[in-house]
């Protein structure tokens, strides 16, 4: 594994403990070293006036990612969007929030459409880069076949999945990315197994890794620097690339709109959402947990897990979720030297 501290510290020489390396900006470093999001010249690829809910993690993640990609490509890029919240809230006629060429075709075909766009660019001798993006439903479920095909052919596309762990656009139903025990409209908190089942799991980043594509990463809206670095890195690579960004959904998760980033942060800090990178089929880096918390601290803030804490004592499923976190921590090496 490479040193993951570099992942969090774009300017290792700088010691600025007030802002640390964790805030969006840093008035003390040169412009070029600052986060894209701190720049007044950022593209605002997804601009104001969109219809996303208050505190939408996906709106945030998409602007973070696309702005970074636009900087990396000098704005020479095209985005393809799967059907879903991101598509609906950005482009209801007669207004669009996008500031770059953008195409929406269908729910399950974003990866393939992007392949087509990339092919057109190649045949026309253009350097224009292509990003496909969608939610977890459009990626891990209905769009999965096209995604896998795009990977396997190593098409020159960066696919970004904004993972909010369910079908939020249709009113919060379960997807294959919904965590166990979570309540959704199709996994109600009823009966002897309330909420989503403890299935075998379908963690698409690892499936992407199994395709041996040049680059795979997970990221979170809670760590902008890491996210931007990964997007920029991905745009420097040709071939199929995949980034999955954890984007909390205040509506679907049952949390205040002001908690979006906090929840994303806690999801990482408890180990439930491992943040890692892989290249050509091998995991190369994992973002270390900074302040480890029990998964309970993360769950209890969300109404979708309220049934786990109902009768004054924790449901046994909390322990099962903790076991999942512990396994992630062990498998991905998520603890730093101090904590290990």
């Amino acid at each position: 594994m490479t040193d993951s501290t570099h992942a969090q510290n774009p300017a290792p020489s700088l010691k600025y403990y007030q802002k640390g390396t964790f805030t969006v900006g840093n008035r003390l470093v040169a412009d070029a070293e600052r986060a894209v999001q701190s720049s007044p010249e950022r593209s605002n690829a997804l601009t104001s006036g969109h219809r996303a809910c208050q505190g939408c993690g996906e709106a945030l993640g998409a602007r973070y990612a696309i702005d970074a990609a636009m900087r990396a490509t000098g704005n020479d890029m095209i985005a393809v969007n799967a059907t879903g919240c991101l598509e609906v809230f950005t482009t209801p006629y007669p207004e669009t929030s996008w500031q770059l060429p953008w195409l929406h075709s269908l729910f399950g075909n974003a990866a393939a459409v992007a392949t087509g766009v990339a092919a057109a660019m190649r045949v026309k001798g253009k350097k224009t880069r292509v990003i496909a993006q969608g939610g977890d439903g459009g990626t891990t479920d209905i769009g999965f076949q096209c995604l896998s095909g795009m990977f396997e052919r190593n098409d020159d596309v960066l696919y970004i999945c904004y993972d909010n762990e369910g079908y939020m656009n249709t009113g919060v139903q379960r997807s294959s990315a919904t965590p166990p025990a979570a309540r959704t409209a199709t996994t109600p908190a009823l009966g002897p197994e309330p909420g989503n089942v403890f299935g075998t799991g379908k963690f698409v980043p690892k499936i992407a890794v199994a395709h041996n594509i040049p680059y795979v990463a997970t990221a979170t809206v809670a760590d902008l620097h890491d996210l931007e670095r990964k997007v920029i890195k991905a745009m420097g690579i040709h071939g199929a690339r995949y980034i999955q960004i954890n984007v909390p959904c205040p509506l679907g998760w049952g949390a205040p709109s002001s908690d979006t980033i906090k929840l994303a942060r806690l999801a990482v800090e408890c180990g439930l959402y491992p943040i890692f990178e892989a290249e050509h089929g091998r995991i190369t880096a994992a973002r270390k947990i900074r302040r480890r918390i029990p998964v309970r601290d993360y769950l209890i803030l969300q109404k979708r897990y309220a049934h786990l804490f109902r009768n004054g004592e924790d449901d046994p499923r909390v322990a099962r979720l903790q076991a999942i976190c512990d396994a992630h921590i062990a498998d991905y090496g998520l603890l730093g030297d101090d904590e290990a």
């Binding site: 007030q18 802002k19 805030t23 969006v24 900006g25 840093n26 008035r27 600052r34 986060a35 999001q37 701190s38 007044p40 605002n44 601009t47 104001s48 969109h50 996303a52 505190g55 939408c56 993690g57 709106a59 945030l60 602007r63 902008l224 979006t260 980033i261």
Partner: peptide, 18 residues
């Protein structure tokens, strides 16, 4: 405020002017 740009960055609606 120490101009860390957090508000500018985390606003999902670009409603913060730097």
């Amino acid at each position: 405020c120490f101009e860390c740009d957090n508000c500018y960055g985390v606003c999902p609606d670009n409603a913060v002017i730097k």
